[in-house]
Design a protein around this nucleic acid. Sequence first.
DNA 1: GAGGGATTGTTATACCATAACAGTCAGCCA
DNA 2: TGGCTGACTGTTATGGTATAACAATCCCTC
Lengths: 167, 167
Amino acid sequence: MPQRVETVFPDPQHDHAPCVAETLERAEKIFKNNGLSLTPLRRQVLQEVAGSHTAVGAYDILERLAQKGGRRLAPISVYRALDSLVAAGMVHRLESRNAFFACHVSHAGDRRQIVLACETCSAVAEVPGGSVFDGIGAAAAASTFKPTRTLVEVIGVCGRCQAGVPV
Amino acid sequence: MPQRVETVFPDPQHDHAPCVAETLERAEKIFKNNGLSLTPLRRQVLQEVAGSHTAVGAYDILERLAQKGGRRLAPISVYRALDSLVAAGMVHRLESRNAFFACHVSHAGDRRQIVLACETCSAVAEVPGGSVFDGIGAAAAASTFKPTRTLVEVIGVCGRCQAGVPV
DNA sequence: GAGGGATTGTTATACCATAACAGTCAGCCA
DNA sequence: TGGCTGACTGTTATGGTATAACAATCCCTC
Ligand SMILES: [Zn+2]
Ligand SMILES: [Zn+2]
Ligand SMILES: [Zn+2]
Ligand SMILES: [Zn+2]
């Protein structure tokens, strides 16, 4: 009998279609609210990023779109789409890996999220980090340093991979 | 009359030679203790990195060494030297910028340091972050996530730059 | 119907990092 | 001695990440 694992990392077996659909809807609204639009290109890129709970590289996206769409985009087109998605908060950048992952949790502009990235299965999750970020803010203030962006990334092994789930 | 600024960012006017000398000495010992050696190449690379309190790119180092030394190194030589210096804890990597900065503070293997990086003057400083890292560890544990490496980088504006020090 | 912002295309280039293999040197020990 | 090993660097080639600069289109508004 499979053991229940308490984790923010979703079961790989879960039905992911609703995750994607919800994310696309949310993106649609956010872009509209900002006087922008979730264009076909941006939608396609977001679909690729949101297609899994892992971080993907810009050139991976490029490659996958080329497989599906026929024509081959220029790298900068993908980067521009990613920029807009990052600005909209729909996609985050995993700095330690130069990669991107979709935000599935709707933390609504609050960027005080701790990022957990599994080095075994590449899954990425976010957990709220209010008090942690408060501590960081205090440490920065004590050094008269004014933060504009704070980055907390934890590289490690997720519960499922620790449990030795076969690849 | 200049105002005193409480900060871990040293005054750009300070005599930096002792900083470098101390760092080189420390490196010498660490390498020796590990059965390795601070070779001329590694020493040169460390000197370039430690030559300022800012983060520098690997190719910047390459370029500066080429200016000084005559011969031009292959990129991988610089990367190998940097790898050894990072492993020794003498140099840290600024993940958010794909750059490297020297460790001037001797935190002796304790990697629970908060990195503050000024986006105006490029200066980098480290401050101890024990409680912050404890909080991050707790959050990870609550998600059955086992950290192997934790990254806390704050991008912002240092006290001096806030005070409008002319460039 | 002129202006301006958003969006994408096109081309070229810059920047960051590693693979694979060879050669040198010093220390160790049968 | 002579062979082994590990540390270190060189050489060549390649792979991966990101942006500059300029043009064209579309839509909305004044
Ligand atoms: Zn998010
Ligand atoms: Zn995993
Ligand atoms: Zn340090
Ligand atoms: Zn500054």
